[in-house]
Amino acid sequence: MKIIILGAGVIGVTSAWYLNSLGHEVIVVDRQPEPGLETSFANAGQVSPGYSTPWAAPGLPMKAIGWMMQRHSPLVIRKRIDFAMFRWMEQLLKNCNAHAYDINKGRMLRVAEYSRDCLDALREETGLTYDDRQRGLIQLFRTEKQIDKAYHDMKLLSDSAIPHELLNVNQILEHEPACRTRAGC
């Protein structure tokens, strides 16, 4: 089959790679002069099945209100009239319950875990390097409240059989010796 892929970001290019390997004729179209120049360009660099969590969680609406008061908030909503945004936020809020969260988290974990295995296989098969490391991720907590929430996440990780370990400060330093454990709150 002849297949046109619209977009040469990381998703378009992986799609092209696997379609080609199944014997298809593939054409990738992009407005940029090279692949991966838009959203794929400088993300946080994490390949993180363990951190694949929906934003739409039971506590999100209240948390979002709290964030609005913070100077260094993780979430900023600029006031503007945008019906696509309102509609999207309405749908997001409908997913902020425990039932939807569990369904969504399950779907995300399924794709993310499978994807990490595909990435491992691709590295093995092609010898591809990309400033990559396979050394795990640490989520760092500065408050007791964050740790309380982590216990809930650990239950979900256990349910999905994802290896994880709660580290004390000394154990953090074994993995990340340069981490400044006296960082302020």
């Binding site: 040469a8 990309y130 990559d132 490391r133 795990g136 907590f141 154990q171 709150c185």
Partner: peptide, 26 residues
């Protein structure tokens, strides 16, 4: 002060842009 950390040993890291460029070339 840091209080604790949650370690996920199966997670990885890497540059998505370099990956995309090299995979596109291949």
């Amino acid at each position: 002060m840091l209080k604790a950390g949650l370690y996920l040993p199966g997670d990885q890291s890497g540059d998505a842009h370099i990956f995309t460029q090299r995979l596109a070339k291949m």
